[in-house]
Amino acid sequence: MSNQLSTEQLLHAYEVMRTIRAFEERLHVEFATGEIPGFVHLYAGEEASAAGVMAHLRDSDCIASNHRGHGHCIAKGVDVYGMMAEIYGKKTGVCGGKGGSMHIADLGKGMLGANGIVGAGAPLVAGAALAARLKGRDDVAVVFFGDGGSNEGAVFEAMNMAAIMKLPCIFVAENNGYAEATASNWSVACKHIADRAAGFGMPGVTIDGFDFFAVHEAAGAAVERARIGQGPSLVEVKLTRYYGHFEGDAQTYRAPDEVKNLRETRDCLMQFRDKTTRAGWLSVAQLDAIDARIEDLIEDAVQRAKADPKPQPADLLTDVYVAYP
């Protein structure tokens, strides 16, 4: 595959993927200490999807994510320290500690929220796309959902509506093979989630989600199509998650060594490093420098988040309404 990305774009893509990986790996460690409240769903292993899609978006483009949303947030430009503080339930978090891992949002960055309700983001981005249309802008809106989410009626309704209204929408199905503990090859009736696009009269493609460049190319085509007013697309990205559905999931439903083998042979960061250095687009030194910088960034985010104050009792009652008599 030929590379149409500039050095800056390549470095940025790697930095995004590395940041997500480091963020999630660190959360995996920190969560085990019991200091993080609630539960977290880690995105490690799926980085190429977020980075490959978001490479085509600007701040005014909107995305909606799901419960496994850290990667989408980071790739859309949400502040890493603010995310970490949010996950720690601190007042300094991007949502003031009121949302947590599953509700990280930054509307200024076009991040319409991670979402605890599977499939719920699809109607929302149809609305965001409709808003762009009504405002006369060429912004697009992207929803990320999983193989589990692909079975939700909300997604079907949104896809149909986006298709009949020709909305500038991209439906990204991140098929990691498991909806919680249920395999997608059992729960999804058709061979590929992308096959469902035909039922809504929109193009659908299935892409190797371990390959950043494949995702980048397919997403680019879908975003371009939406931006020029040709309507929605469905992009199925096949990938894997390295950790359980949530932290603490022993994943006994998976084959022994399934994750280990994928990590060793298909890992998206590994493939990206290989390809870009082999082709001479990037140097090992450039990439290592990013790794080191990200390590510091995450360390700093964790230390600050840990030290930050929790919300105050008075915060319990604020932010329910913009104004309430």
Binding site: C62, L112, V125, G127, A131, K135, E157, N160
Partner: peptide
């Protein structure tokens, strides 16, 4: 013109779209 939109019989879809549009300044 263009501001009174018939929706398909998809309450979840179009109510959700209205919610999404509301977050985008409409």
């Amino acid at each position: 013109p263009g501001r009174v939109l018939d929706a398909p019989l998809s309450e979840l879809g179009y109510v959700g779209a209205a919610v999404g549009a509301a977050t985008q300044g409409l």
